[in-house]
Amino acid sequence: MIELRDVHKSFGKVEVLKGITASVAKSEVVCIIGPSGSGKSTILRCINGLESYDRGEISVEGARVDSNDRSIVAIRTQVSMVFQRFNLFPHRTALENVIEGPLYVKKEPREQAVARGRALLAQVGLADKAEVHPPKLSGGQQQRVAIARALAMQPKAILFDEPTSALDPELVGDVLSVMRKLADDGMTMVVVTHEMGFARDVADRVLFIDGGVIVEQGAAKSVLNQPQHPRTQDFLRRVLHPL
């Protein structure tokens, strides 16, 4: 469903992606792990055109991703994104955040958008927070609203950019369990994360990225339990046993 072929990307003189080739099938959950600055987030941002890429090709269901072309709008409505810092619209309530896209981008009738918006908020466990503005919600609640906002576009895939990294530890579980439910329901997901437990339990495949290249990839359990490459082994040892 999502294909990357030899994707290169530089910021100025720094090449952050040095030839990424990967694919994500329908209903697959792929976790991208790796040290900070390895290019993990950049991959996600290139997939939905928040960043352009210099060489290679990215396509979503056969349509080429070009951040400078009008077609990017259609791709973005199919591939939603959830951010590390939530990026909810603070001047709108939780429900208004969720229905913003359906109302103004997809031009759905209001009653229909509101009904589905409320159902989605219920799905992420926030039915009672529909009329609350984001600054009055906890980080975990905000992130769940953000997931509902992404789902409201009825996307074919969702990209998660470190969705739990900005959360207090005790709030991480609520967000991860919402994501796990999505995975169980067959949503195609690409998740950049440091939550190795989530990757092991929920992901079908794991990509380990370091220095802008895919160092190792494979079934989640085999990469995480028996990493083959020394860099993957080193990274996992540091993450799982920091002391």
Binding site: L50, R76, S80, M81, F83, F89, G101, A150
Partner: peptide
């Protein structure tokens, strides 16, 4: 915040 603009873009605005 730039994140606001990116969030708007990712819902197709």
């Amino acid at each position: 915040d730039k994140g606001q603009i990116e969030a708007a873009q990712t819902i197709g605005m």
